[in-house]
Design a protein around this nucleic acid. Sequence first.
DNA 1: CAGCATCCTCGCGGATACTG
DNA 2: CAGTATCCGCGAGGATGCTG
Lengths: 126, 126
Amino acid sequence: MSDYGPGGLFLADCPARLAVELIADKWTVVVLSGLSEGPVRHGDLIDLIGGISRKMLTQTLRRLESHGLVRRHAYAEVPPRVEYELTSLGATLIEPIHVLTEWARANGDAVLDALDAHSEPVAHQG
Amino acid sequence: MSDYGPGGLFLADCPARLAVELIADKWTVVVLSGLSEGPVRHGDLIDLIGGISRKMLTQTLRRLESHGLVRRHAYAEVPPRVEYELTSLGATLIEPIHVLTEWARANGDAVLDALDAHSEPVAHQG
DNA sequence: CAGCATCCTCGCGGATACTG
DNA sequence: CAGTATCCGCGAGGATGCTG
């Protein structure tokens, strides 16, 4: 656990890999974002996120739960009601995610511009 | 582009999606990390990262290049030499990534503990 | 309403061999 | 040394239907 190479690299066997494993999938970040303001019901998350299937939502939540980032709370009611909320550990992940999304908000256009310029390398002939 | 819902949510059609699309794969974050200290050659990246195939490295680099985050520099030599470096735009992504990996460094153990406790829900009978 | 099981498709990503 | 093409297995992930 000492260091991770010259200059503080964080590549091979290191925390970065864990972080990547946690957030490097299609839905994790978005789901965590959806929970960032307080407990939300399953169905409301579906609605809130948009585009996620029930299967993937449940699966993502289960995974986050097993990693200690999300707590599940099922009420013994009928019809059933299940709420999910961030644990204190999970809440600490919101900040890094926020930094990331702020980056996207600030630089998203630049990225899209680059994509654009890349797909249209049509010389202006002059 | 006005707001993203109550409380500044960033879910459906928003920058967060772009950020996720950019970094939510197995290698992007690690490759960017590998370039964070300056230009690196293809082969050195392979070596540095560990576990990535040439195919995936090239593919990831091409993608980052098209998004304006990485610049490719091929020298007209023999044997060939190609270096990759972050663009100024790409360099701005290092900070969010750094925040993320710092989180992992600080909370990695907690996550692993949670995983552990989850896979061994053996009641202590107490 | 929440969750699980099933089926099915698609593309990620590794292995290998070939080109320049 | 760097890049491309090809083959292929596997798992992500959507769609649907059933249970409680």
